[in-house]
Design a binder for these strands. Structure first.
Lengths: 202, 202
DNA sequence: TAAGGTTGTAGAATAATTTCTACAGAATTT
DNA sequence: AAATTCTGTAGAAATTATTCTACAACCTTA
């Protein structure tokens, strides 16, 4: 039973690195790639996969939007998030979708390698229960809030966000106000500062 | 004369991807890695390199801080920035240091490959060499524009600025639009980035 | 399981911001 | 010196964003 792996990341060098690594060092040959949510979904219907490794942000949007669908249609697919975003924020959000593997791109090489092997060999989940400590204000954001945060941090306006996500502007504004409330930021400047401070990049 | 290449990136998978790619597909074997400004500097003194490929943000800070030193000590080293940051903002800044190769991580695979080969084979620069010396976009701002910029950079809104300066909101908006025009910023996010980049504290 | 909070979504009303246009005085260029 | 561009200022109109309210579906907790 060899694993069939799909990699979704919008940086081709990340895909190359992962793929070559998985092939050369771990001996998993059956690997395909996707760079957008769109191609990701296409690949998934084309054939069967056992493991999916994906970033949160792809070239055409956030995978948080498509993960619920993927989960519903392929309940047995093993999914790992491999992202720059800090696990203590996005890991929480992603657990709601039943995803227990979250690996940071900034992790050291050894850690990444270990995590990859564990993931593909279906060992224990990688998200540890968060340690008590400083409150990360972004940790309390709901999935949709994170998604919209992503746009806000890029400097995109309410109207454009609404259009991108097929929402009413009111909705986006409401969610924005919840983001500001939860993070205690008073304006975009402060929100950007906080995001930098807590290492939240879109 | 085989090229001696140093890769500096804080994502080990990017380094792996680049390294394996350069080795397997382009046949360049002599490659070393660094994940921080610190190790980058250490590698440089350890031995001679002909080419340096580096990201702007490493684990311990921005390479913009160390590039001037590197340039001074190794004037013949060929340097390429390989970064997620948009070239139209950072590319300009980096030209000040005499760096003419800027490649985006989000570029397609073909483009990346072409750029890498060109770079290592010392072909034409990838950032067009426009005007000598970098214009600081903030330098062209009129006094009142700088005054209002000051408020804008603090995240203060048009209405409040107008009240503080006893102006009509229209006036403030007009001046703001002139600021955006002159700096070529598309939104506050970009304006803040530019301000950081050019050390504008006003 | 009932009660209470959270999340995702908007309508209506309101407020903030931008755009387009204009104009006079200052600065700069030809 | 005349012509041109830049600055500082707004009115009117248009656009964009927020607020306040609501509600159903979900989650959590006592």
């Amino acid at each position: 039973m060899h694993p069939q792996i799909l990699l979704a990341d919008d940086h081709s060098m990340i895909r190359k690195g992962l793929k070559l690594y998985l092939q050369l060092n771990l001996g998993y040959a059956d690997i395909r790639e996707a760079d957008s949510c769109n191609t990701l979904m296409n690949e998934l219907v084309k054939r069967k996969f056992s493991h999916l490794i994906l970033d949160i942000i792809l070239s055409d949007g956030s995978t948080l939007e498509v993960i619920p669908n993927i989960r519903r249609v392929y309940p047995d697919l093993h999914i790992m998030i491999f992202s720059m975003q800090p696990a203590d924020i996005y890991g929480e959000a992603v657990k709601q979708f039943g995803i227990n593997y979250y690996l940071s791109k900034t992790a050291g090489e050894d850690e990444i390698i270990l995590a990859l092997r564990k993931f593909i060999e279906n060992e224990a989940p990688l998200i540890k229960n968060s340690m008590p400590g400083i409150e990360n204000p972004f940790k309390t954001l709901a999935p949709r809030e994170l998604e919209i945060l992503h746009y806000v941090l890029k400097g995109i306006g309410t109207k454009e966000i609404a259009e991108s996500l097929n929402l009413k502007m009111n909705t986006v504004s409401t969610i924005k106000s919840r983001i500001y409330e939860k993070t205690n930021a008073g304006n975009i400047k402060e929100l950007l500062e906080l995001a930098t401070l807590y290492n939240v990049n879109y």
